[in-house]
Design a binder for these strands. Structure first.
Length: 426
RNA sequence: GGAGAGAUGGCCGAGUCGGCUGAAGGCGCUCGCCUGCUAAGCGAGUGUACUCCGAAAGGGGUACCGAGGGUUCGAAUCCCUCUCUCUCCGCCA
């Protein structure tokens, strides 16, 4: 959520931002509601002031055993008027709040204006695509031939867009989770957390998934709980409503969770393989930082995520999302795209974002500078470190061999009981 | 699932028959005084949001005692609903 005062003072900038994001929205209703709200507020507060004074007067009269009947009668009418105005005000504020909740974050000035992902500039590239003296296969062929990925049975058990891992495949997924968590905790200074995998509506609203994107979420029947679409939600909301001390910042958390997404509107996209699932595993990085440091923190967050790919020897590139591709809550986002030779393309494997105070305002996460009484909103950031399923995909495709086996990257072998290759018998 | 108890300011904790309680008291914290250091002591201050006035410093007003509704001229105090926490019983990985 943007700051109310900021929107009020910068209606034109906000409107321009909405056009840059390819979601033009008429700001006129906001301006009108704001004026109406302030007029009513002024009147109702004036009446309440009268009422408070009269109440004291009535109390005094009663104490002195004098008659307060006339005043009480008069106040009865004032109270009725207050009740009416309060009701009107409540309705306006509800509309107002809803409008404000639908406005996305202001992009950072360094974010390029562009219509869609084709306008995302590549900011760096690491490593090289491996050379093959045979036609590299897509991971679904590799995985099924090795007997480690089973989409048919997953479809039988649940439905489309689910996967069943067998043997070395399951072990590899688990190894990746442990490896990522270990790197981030021991080398990058993150604290590991294991949050609930279901969250309530307040938490979803705090990070910006609600109210706008409910159709992307899985909701429990009979409960106002949702399956987490990313660990960002439970982990960022850890400090919902809190005031942190300056000494507590920055705070770095890393969490493994499964992620559940309805993928509404993606029918026919990425129907094969592990790329787009209703359930996938992810290790997430979340930071709470002081405002003046948040763009440096974004750079180091990106590096933390990149480290995993580097350790695994996977070729990737980094792009900056342009205004038209930027997420609702984000002020700036880098996507890391890993090379997938089996599909001859780069695919997003991590998304690292600075939300500035957008989420902190919604979730009411503040901090206090030493010696100051005034609290300020923290800045929140998060990034995938990494999407585990897609990392497994990248390993299968990049480390495949002519005979259909797959080499286990050096860094993962300690987590795989020393296994060096995954062959048909594993 | 059954029975009961509770939710007040950064923390602890008081709020009697509804009125002068933004909220006693204590702790903590900040500033000043005092003290050769430390401890103690003395004085003052110490929430948030919105809104109005002001160039600003600052000042006025309104709201907030788990959340939402109700009764009333007036509610932290009475009534209803919900949420959460705790205790006991049952069940359970």
């Amino acid at each position: 959520m943007l700051d109310l005062k900021f929107v009020r003072d910068n209606v034109d900038r906000v409107a321009q931002m909405l056009r840059d994001r390819q979601m033009p929205l008429d700001m006129q209703p906001f301006v009108e509601l704001d004026g109406k709200r302030r007029n009513i507020l002024r009147e109702v507060e004036e009446l309440k002031h009268q009422r408070n004074q009269a109440s004291e007067e009535i109390a005094r009269l009663k104490r002195e055993k004098k008659d307060a009947g006339a005043l009480i009668e008069k106040m009865r009418q004032v109270s009725q008027r207050i009740k009416d105005l309060d009701q009107e005000l409540g309705a306006i504020e509800e509309q107002f709040r809803q409008f404000l909740m639908l406005i996305p974050n202001m992009p950072h000035p360094s974010v390029p204006v562009g219509a869609d992902e084709s306008a995302n500039p590549v900011v760096k590239t690491w490593g090289q695509a491996p050379a093959f003296d045979f036609e590299p296969k897509p991971h679904w062929d590799i995985g099924e031939q090795l007997g480690i990925l089973d989409f048919e049975r997953a479809a039988k058990i649940t439905g489309a867009r689910f996967a069943l891992y067998w043997g070395a495949g399951a072990a590899l997924e688990r190894a990746l989770i442990s490896f990522m968590l270990d790197v981030h905790t021991t080398r990058h200074g993150y604290t590991e957390v294991l949050p609930p995998f279901m969250v309530n509506r307040t938490a979803m609203t705090g990070t910006g998934q609600l109210p706008k994107f409910e159709e992307d979420l899985f909701k429990l029947e009979g409960w106002d709980y949702f399956l987490v679409p990313t660990a960002e939600v439970p982990v960022t909301n850890i400090h919902m409503g809190e005031v942190l001390e300056e000494d507590d910042l920055p705070r770095y958390y890393t969490a493994y969770t499964p992620c559940f997404r309805s993928e509404a509107g993606s029918y026919g996209k990425d129907t094969r393989g592990l790329i787009r699932q209703h359930q996938f595993n992810k290790v997430e990085l979340v930071k709470f930082v002081q405002p003046e440091t948040s763009y440096d923190e974004l750079e180091s967050l990106l590096q933390n995520a990149e480290t995993i790919l580097q350790e695994l020897g996977l070729h990737y590139r980094v792009v900056t999302l342009c205004t038209g591709d930027l997420g609702f809550s984000s002020a700036k986002t880098y996507d890391i795209e890993v090379w997938l030779p089996g599909q001859n393309t780069y695919r997003e494997i991590s998304s690292c974002s600075n939300f500035e105070d957008f989420q902190a305002r919604r979730a009411n996460i503040r901090f206090r500078r030493k010696g100051k009484k005034k609290t300020e909103l923290v800045h929140t950031l998060n990034g995938s470190g990494l999407a585990v399923g897609r990392t497994l995909v990248a390993i299968l495709e990049n480390y495949q061999q002519a005979d259909g086996s797959v080499i286990v990257p050096q860094a993962l072998r300690p987590y795989m009981r020393g296994m060096e290759t995954i062959g048909p018998r594993n």
